[in-house]
Design a binder for these strands. Structure first.
Length: 827
RNA sequence: GCCCGGGUGGCGGAAUGGCAGACGCGGAAGACUCAAAAUCUUUUGUUGGCAACAACGUGGGGGUUCAAGUCCCUUCCCGGGCACCA
């Protein structure tokens, strides 16, 4: 018997318990059915779900449930990105144990996820801080090391004073720390790196195959990788018997070089100025630039400044001596740390030359032939004909680029070169709460990897947290001191932990085989499920996580562990949840707590609202009244099904469709039109908002039917309600389950097949045709379906209103579109 | 500066080149009620008109087309990404 009033808390708790008991969403490899892997980015266990999570999981849950009803074997797991700074900060601030803090947060957030009624296979839950997980993260590190992809080097690295640790380039946003926003400084440190640059080309190339990714994300990755092609060659510096190697993409302009510039950190600077009058000035300049912050140093707004070294280099193309400068706009990390200056054809060089009165020489003439350095006001970087370029003069500059390279290669003084903006991934962190890097330092044997059989390297408990610049693990004697696996002598452990982005770079593989104790995952299982068919998360990971995960996947493929090269086939980047015009945040005080909303309206309402209020990729404006609307809609559904409950329970499963009257046929048509619309919206377009609006229309149609026809055929009502509940089930899983159970059948609505359109039901025998005169709607007529253009036209001219409006006018043209409209053009 | 998104009623948002504003919110009216809430029904782009109806209307300006929110050109505004990468 259906309760008169819809009380979500009762319905939802009941079914959540039931699904948990039945393990309704557990999955195994099954080759009888097509597989489908839907994944939402796993959360950091901060303690509470926020609306962004609710949105993320609601979207994923709709996809998972829909695919399941379509007959797919669906994998839909959940876990925790559980290592990271907040746990450690809580430890420092409140003296709690990071592990305890993390596990408590996980427990709370898991409880909140249960309240949302998400269809996860909870047997596959993982947490990256669990020793059975990070053991395999360490295994991955060793794999990278074996493959020569993990190495240690001393380098200038990004350091965050607030977080007391180094950061990867990807984690520096506008010169600030991605996590705490404080200014990042440079430090010279010996650190572990992953050789992601070795995969730069493939990471770039394979973007083309990611048809299911938003262009925006692909473009961002493309920019980040920043591939360029050009030439590298040397300028001789006879006075010190050295060469300065430069990289350029504009080798076609080599005859226009009027100076060579080094980065302040370039290793040759000291040698060049040794004993020269310029020595003091150059050193002062270099010191000043080095002390500039990263932000002002790399901003294109910063004025180009430089200083002459007093030394000269020889242009190998024309033998000219050109001055060597040091300037702030040259970066030591990119290319060779030295560039050739061609003021006429590079805007930066132009500005620099103007400031220091360096000569400009035109070597590319524009197609209109009007360029001259005296009349130019800025550099010309367009295409053209090479001039003043010796044997290359008169060549098209594109062809010239090639010819110059060939010239260099033939003489052995240079070659074609590809360069990337992407740098290797700095993966060490001077923090406690992360996976320890499984490396050992032995005085005799040097750097020795921990044997895989000795894993895991366990994080010690009972550790004291004081702020300082050494890694917390370095202070734990029992952890640091160990024996060398090679010689058995006394040795020390690496005390840095891994960047947590390593943990999240392979978790989607672990889900495919989460309890494996002998390997990170079984290849057969991973190959069955992978790639992830639909990945869903925020666009803020467009570069970070999504680039690292792609890198990992390629390395694992090369290592023979899997047979796919890309982890995520389709990517949906959801928009933010906004309130009062800005992102929900504690500091803005505009946070709406999911738990409160669920307590007041239920999870179904929260889900329906959040999916209905905006398309998934766009930002979503939170509206309390909108939530009320979603709640009202579910109430309306509840009541209309309740109204028909008696006849539904006794309804026949089959009935004679031909016996329906006009109202009945229309209702049945509404059902099947809705099935078509919702299937298209959910399955093809991820347009959940319009899917829900179509379902709302069907409910409205049911109310209209009730008003019009008191004696409904039970068979028809059953067909409609059964279809309606199945259509809504992925969105509002609890209420549909309850109603299904009460009025349709014993089993779960979520085990049912997705409804199919009956084309017969959708057919109509009359259509409305719009009559336009000069493109303006003047009348509408109902005509039998299938009239051709000519028949329609004559019908149109028969209309009294049309005749009236045409009186005294000349018909110029008539456009007649069957099933749609007739447009009469008159003068 | 460059590259992506986006600009549609009072609001969130719909519209394979073919009736702009589906659906929801908000507003108005009616029914039920002693009354209110809840619910159900009707209505609701703007302007003019008692009305039938007409004109206007998708950031601005041009264009293509019988027909443009949708295609093309141009311009403005908002959001995001990249930005001395040679």
């Amino acid at each position: 018997m259906i309760n008169e009033k819809y009380i979500p808390s009762e319905v939802e708790a009941k079914w959540q318990k039931n699904w948990a008991k039945e393990q309704a969403f557990s999955t195994e490899v099954n080759r009888q059915r097509p597989e489908y892997y839907v994944l939402e980015m796993f959360p950091y266990p901060s303690g509470n779900l926020h609306m962004g999570h609710v949105r993320n999981y609601s979207i994923g849950d709709v996809v998972a449930r829909y695919k399941k009803m379509q007959g797919y074997n669906v994998l839909h797991p959940m876990g925790w990105d559980a290592f990271g700074m907040p746990a450690e900060n809580a430890a420092i601030k409140h003296g709690v144990n990071p592990a305890d803090w993390t596990w408590e947060n996980i427990a709370n957030m898991r409880r909140q996820q249960h309240q949302l009624g998400l269809s996860y296979d909870w047997d596959r839950e993982i947490a990256t801080c669990h020793v059975e997980y990070y053991k395999w993260t360490q295994w991955m590190f060793l794999l990278f090391y074996e493959k020569g992809l993990a190495y240690k080097k001393k380098a200038t690295v990004n350091w965050c004073n607030e977080c007391n640790t180094v950061l990867a380039n990807e984690q520096v946003v506008d010169g600030c720390c991605w996590r705490c926003d404080s200014i990042v400084v440079k430090k010279e440190l010996e650190q572990w790196f992953f050789k992601i640059t070795q995969y730069a080309d493939r990471l770039l190339e394979d973007l083309k195959d990611l048809k299911g990714w938003p262009d925006r994300v692909k473009t961002m990755q493309e920019n980040w990788i920043g591939r360029s092609t050009g030439a590298e060659f040397s300028f001789d510096v006879p006075e010190i018997s050295e060469k300065i190697s430069v990289y350029t993409t504009r080798q076609d302009t080599v005859f226009g070089v009027s100076y060579v510039v080094l980065a302040p950190e370039h290793p040759l600077v000291e040698k060049l100025i040794a004993g020269k009058a310029e020595q003091a000035a150059v050193r002062a300049f270099v010191d000043r630039v080095r002390n500039m912050s990263e932000i002002s140093r790399t901003s294109s707004e910063t004025e180009k400044e430089g200083v002459f070294t007093g030394a000269y280099a020889v242009n190998p193309f024309n033998g000219e001596q050109v001055p060597i400068w040091v300037a702030n706009y040259v970066l030591v990390e990119y290319g060779t740390g030295a560039v050739m200056g061609v003021p006429a054809h590079d805007q930066r060089d132009w500005e620099f030359a103007v400031k220091y009165s360096l000569p400009k020489r035109l070597v590319i003439q524009a197609p209109n032939g009007e360029l001259a350095t005296d009349t130019m006001t800025e550099a010309y970087d367009g295409p053209g004909k090479m001039v003043n370029s010796g044997e290359f003069s008169e060549m098209d500059n594109q062809a010239g680029k090639n010819a110059i390279c060939t010239w260099l290669e033939q003489r052995g003084i240079g070659q074609r070169r590809v360069n990337y903006r992407l740098r290797d991934w700095l993966v060490s962190r001077q923090r406690y709460w992360g996976a320890p890097i499984p490396m050992i330092y032995c005085d005799k044997c040097g750097v020795v990897p921990v044997p895989k059989t000795d894993l895991p390297v366990t994080l010690p408990q009972n550790i004291s947290f004081e702020t300082g610049s050494v890694s917390p693990l370095a202070k734990v004697e029992e952890f640091v001191n160990c024996t060398c696996p090679k010689c058995g002598g006394a040795a020390r452990r690496e005390t840095d932990t891994m960047d947590t982005f390593i943990c999240s770079s392979w978790y989607y593989f672990r889900y495919t085989d989460p309890r494996n104790t002998s390997q990170p995952f079984d290849s057969v299982k991973a190959n069955y499920w992978m790639p992830v068919d639909q990945y869903i998360g925020g666009v803020e990971h467009a570069i970070l996580h999504l680039l690292y995960a792609r890198f990992f996947t390629k390395v694992l493929k090369d290592a023979g562990l899997i047979n796919i090269g890309e982890p995520f086939k389709n990517l949906l980047t959801q928009g933010m949840v906004i309130k009062d015009g800005s992102k929900m945040s504690k500091s803005k005080g505009n946070v709406v707590s999911p738990e409160e909303i669920i307590a007041k309206y239920g999870a179904d309402t929260a889900r329906v609202f959040i999916l209905f209020a905006a398309p998934p990729e766009r930002d979503l404006e939170w509206s309390d009244q909108g939530v009320e609307g979603a709640y009202r809609f579910l109430g309306r559904l509840w009541r209309i099904v309740g109204h028909y409950a008696d006849s539904l329970v006794n309804a026949p499963a089959k009935y004679d469709v031909n016996s329906l009257d006009k109202n009945g046929r229309e209702l049945r048509r509404a059902l099947h039109v809705t099935i078509g619309k919702v299937s298209d919206a959910v399955g093809e377009r991820f347009s959940f908002n319009t899917a829900i609006s179509s379902i709302m229309e069907l409910v409205n149609a049911l109310y209209a039917f009730k008003e019009a026809d008191a004696n409904a055929q039970p068979g028809l009502i059953r067909e409609v309600v059964s279809g309606l509940l199945r259509l809504l089930a992925p969105f509002a899983p609890h209420i549909t389950e309850e109603l299904w159970h009460e009025v349709i059948a014993e089993g779960s609505v979520h085990e049912q097949a997705w409804p199919e359109v009956d084309l017969e039901a959708v057919k109509v025998d009359e259509v409305e045709i719009v009559l336009q005169i000069n493109g303006k709607v003047r009348d509408k007529i109902i005509v039998p379906v299938g009239l051709n253009a000519t028949e329609l036209e004559s019908k149109a001219f028969e209309q009294e209103k049309v005749k009236e409006l045409l009186a005294g006018k000349t018909v110029v043209k008539v456009i007649s579109v069957p099933q749609k409209l007739v447009n009469i053009v008159v003068k």
